[in-house]
Design a protein around this nucleic acid. Structure first.
Length: 231
DNA sequence: GCGACAG
DNA sequence: ATCTTGTCGC
C-alpha cells in the first residue's frame, strides 16, 4: 500500500554517516531548548496536522517563543519512518522561529532506531542543529530486545543495548511512574540528553517541559484550526 | 492468517 | 497519533 520504504531507508542510510554522539556545545552554553510536537485531524479525505514549537529557557523552563504551522500530511505512519511523515511540517515551523534554539527535543526516538535515524537524529542532521529524542512508549528496534525496567526512584535508568551497542536509555523521570525512552539525536551525547531530560522535568509532567508545552499548544491550535476554516 | 507497531 | 466513559488516586 506504500512503496516508499526502500527509498526512505536509502536516504537514512546515507545520512546516518553524519551522526555525532558527542556534545557540540558546553553545558553553560545551553541557554534555550525547543520542544516540538504535532497534532493531527481529518479534513474530508485529507489528513492535516499542526506543528508547534515552544522555545524555553534551558534553566527555568520559562517560555521565550512559540510558533506553529499547519498543513497537509501526505505520508502515512510507518514504524521506523516517522521522520518522513512529520519533518516537512516541522522544518517549515522551524523556519518561523526568531530565535535559534541551542537544542531541539523531539517526541519520539533518535539513535534508538533500526538505522539510528529516528526523527530526532534525522532532524538534527537536516537542520544542522543539536537534537535529542524522548519517546513515551518503547520502540522494539530489533523485534526481540526488550528494555530492563529501571529502579523505582526518580533518576534511575537502564541502558538499552542491542548487539553490544548502547542505543538509548529507559529513564525514570518520576518515582514510580513508567520510564521514558531517551536517545541522542546528533550533536549531543546520551549522558547530556538524560541530564537535560531530568532537569527539565517538573512535578506536573514526566516529560520535559518544552515537550509538554508543545503538546498542549498543539491541541489548542488544532481545536481552533479544525473549527475555523471550513464548513 | 495473525501479531507488532516511536507518533 | 486519534476516537472515547468512567474510574481510581492524590
Amino acid at each position: 500500500m506504500y512503496a516508499e520504504e526502500e527509498k526512505f531507508a536509502q536516504i537514512q542510510n546515507d545520512l546516518r554517516q553524519k551522526i555525532s554522539l558527542e556534545d557540540s556545545f558546553s553545558a553553560d552554553a545551553l541557554k534555550t531548548v525547543a520542544g516540538v510536537d504535532l497534532a493531527y485531524w481529518q479534513e474530508g479525505d485529507t489528513e492535516r496536522a499542526v506543528c508547534c514549537i515552544v522555545v524555553t529557557d534551558a534553566a527555568s523552563g520559562e517560555v521565550i517563543e512559540k510558533k506553529q504551522c499547519d498543513g497537509m500530511i501526505d505520508v502515512p505512519y510507518i514504524p521506523g519512518y516517522l521522520a518522513f511523515r512529520e519533518l516537512p511540517l516541522v522544518l517549515k515551523t522551524v523556519g518561523l522561529l526568531e530565535n535559534e534554539p541551542d537544542l531541539f527535543i523531539f517526541d519520539g526516538n533518535g539513535y534508538l532506531h533500526p538505522r539510528h535515524m529516528g526523527i530526532a537524529t534525522h532532524a538534527a542532521l537536516v537542520m544542522g542543529r543539536p537534537a535529542m529524542g524522548i519517546a513515551k512508549t518503547y520502540f522494539r528496534v530489533d523485534k526481540k530486545t526488550d528494555y530492563t525496567e529501571p529502579a523505582e526512584d526518580a533518576g534511575s535508568y537502564t541502558d538499552i543495548i542491542i548487539d553490544g551497542e548502547v542505543y538509548g536509555r529507559a529513564l525514570r523521570t518520576h518515582k514510580g511512574v513508567k520510564p521514558v525512552f531517551v536517545s541522542a539525536g546528533s550533536g549531543i551525547s546520551l549522558d547530556t540528553a538524560c541530564d537535560i531530560s531530568l532537569r527539565l522535568t517538573s512535578k506536573e509532567s514526566h516529560i520535559p517541559i518544552p515537550t509538554r508545552l508543545a503538546d498542549l499548544e498543539t491541541h489548542t491550535a488544532r481545536a481552533a484550526l479544525r473549527g475555523g476554516a471550513e464548513e
